[in-house]
Design a protein around this nucleic acid. Structure first.
Lengths: 344, 344
DNA sequence: TTGGGGCGAACTGGGCACGCG
DNA sequence: ACGCGTGCCCAGTTCGCCCCA
């Protein structure tokens, strides 16, 4: 099977006829150690010959670093969140860290899992992308035991935060519709209490206000799931008078909205325009290819990782980071057009 | 910030007026140690009062276990693979393990990342869900240093393997179309060299053979991406004579197929029926709500985890596990119907 | 004397086999 | 025999010291 007896540093040292101390410093390329070149060479070749692999656990026991970063995520069923995860994961890996993955809900509910995760010595830091629910306790529990960075949370209470420009995305989506001539635009919102949804909604409101339509705000409550989007769409379809356009808080929600419209034979964009936030891979494959605002999700994750690594290295990062570059961008597809001409 | 000086086991022992040994055994609830109840109580209360958290690194240095399992995944951009990941992650967490996440491609390309990942002592085992490319070297490198389980790979060369019943899924999808009266059914396949795709294709062929249509097999090469599905669909549309139905190897691929058909104004299912494999969340939101074969992906991940944990605990698992329960199941939607009546 | 070259031992936090009163 | 302490071990890292030319 796999080698029961991995060679240790001592094995290498013995074989090379030196002390473990020297072997350690040579293999770690300690600059302030003076060793003859032939000794150095001998140690190295013995190490490779024996297939020496350093014992990460012993190493991190002595040093104070584990070389591991924790990623606490929620909603892995949504590709949106997975994008953020991938960005963070990739950045950590490239920086030489390994990444531990945990689900926010599980950790929040299960104390023993939380303890195992933040057990002393295991993690050098944590990136926390939690839901909008019991995140307070989780943030507290984690950030009190290890450096942390919050993703897409409003207020970190001393914990550094990274966000994309949700408000700008809301503005961009809404302005696009206004530019096409729409004046009756509904906003299909996320779950109550979600700050992310609130920020997008405030962008929507700001855009309306800009053209003197502040009173025309029309909020339909939904959530992050396709099902909640479908329910919201049904609700809208019951109205005697339809809005001419929808801004949907999230692409996953929008998939439910579009399916309901499709099944009700409401034509998009002829009868109603739809624009959403997040240019995920699937939006062009929905019932109608969906116009969407692209936000740099991957970068959201990688920036969070960068900040965390800075914090670990002792450089204290700013507490509230905003990703403005690249700016939100509208990706035009088939789901938006001029409003239907009013007759009657 | 966070406590610089976490209390150690010795701190607890001193405070409680006992030796570290006793403190250790009491806190670990060692059954074969005799301690007076008041001593036991004292140790425990001191531990909680001081907020003692065991040092996972020190613990795993002494014992031979790290309490960590590695998840090496590929294609996190596909929800299909994320489902498997979630199943494995969840099972590991519930069993008291933490999980390390890595990308198969990165590990395969980058030796230092691979070494950091399988560094001695860090992992108790690895679940490997790799791509079809350079997996051999990766499997070799990982399984030679730590127990491993392969997900959806054909041949583990001594490494235990877990698979869903891809061939049965191919059969089920094809039989559904045959039952509707289709006789000209094309199979849109995954990338060359993918064993998963090959197994589904063999199910497709078997179903055709069953009704005496062995010669009617019609394979169109594509891949796992929506784009490759789109290209395959375009290729099919160029034919002078369209098949009446398609079996698409994967739901993500199918999303590209359907979009192309939608944009070419080819009606599904009136002109062509489409069935796919994997009942992912998005399939009902595509251009047409898609009939799909449901495979137990979450369970694929959790079963892999169970097998690995068995292996870690010394119970050697069977080398080739097949998940037959629940069996593949057809989920009927709108994309399949009788073939168009032939005229002319 | 000085400095190049390398060694010994303490230390990281805990687990466990003994042994002692 | 009950109830508990001593001391070594896990695998490295690092500080101080020592020896010899």
């Amino acid at each position: 099977m796999y080698p029961r007896g991995h060679p240790t540093l001592r094995d290498v040292a013995n074989e090379a006829g030196v002390s473990p101390a020297i072997a350690s410093r040579v293999l770690n390329e300690d600059p302030k150690v003076r060793v003859r070149d032939d000794t150095r060479e001998r140690i190295r070749s013995v190490a490779t010959a024996l297939g020496y692999v350093p014992h990460s656990v012993a190493r991190s026991l002595r040093g104070a670093r584990s070389g591991a970063i924790g990623l606490v995520m929620h909603g892995l069923d949504s590709p949106i969140n997975v994008d953020v995860l991938a960005g963070a994961q990739s950045r950590c890996t490239r920086a030489g860290y390994v990444t531990l993955l945990a689900e926010a809900e599980e950790l929040a509910e299960n104390d023993s899992q939380l303890r195992a995760f933040v057990a002393r010595g295991r993690l050098d830091g944590v990136i926390l992308h939690s839901g909008y629910g019991q995140e307070d306790r989780l943030v507290e529990a984690i950030s009190s035991s290890v450096p942390a960075v919050l993703v897409n949370a409003d207020d970190g209470r001393n914990v550094p935060t990274v966000r994309v420009d949700d408000a700008a995305a809301g503005v961009l989506a809404t302005e696009h519709l206004l530019g096409l001539g729409h004046r009756e635009i509904a906003f299909v919102a996320g779950p109550d209490g979600s700050q992310t949804s609130d920020r997008r909604e405030s962008g929507y409101r700001a855009a309306l206000r800009q053209v003197g339509l502040a009173g025309g705000a029309d909020i339909v409550h939904a959530g992050w799931s396709p099902r909640s989007g479908a329910v919201a769409a049904e609700e809208i379809l019951q109205r005697p008078h339809l809005p001419t356009a929808l801004v949907v808080v999230n692409a996953v929600t929008a998939s439910g909205v579009l399916s309901t419209l499709r099944d009700a034979w409401v034509r998009v964009p002829e009868e109603i325009s739809v624009v959403t936030i997040h240019d995920a891979w699937f939006v062009e494959h929905l019932a109608v290819a969906l116009t969407a605002v692209r936000l740099p999700l991957h970068q959201l994750g990688s920036t969070a990782a960068t900040l965390l690594i800075d914090a670990i290295d002792g450089r204290s990062p700013e507490t509230n980071t905003f990703i403005t570059e690249p700016a939100p961008e509208l990706v035009l597809r088939r789901s938006t057009d001029h409003p239907p001409s009013r007759e009657g």
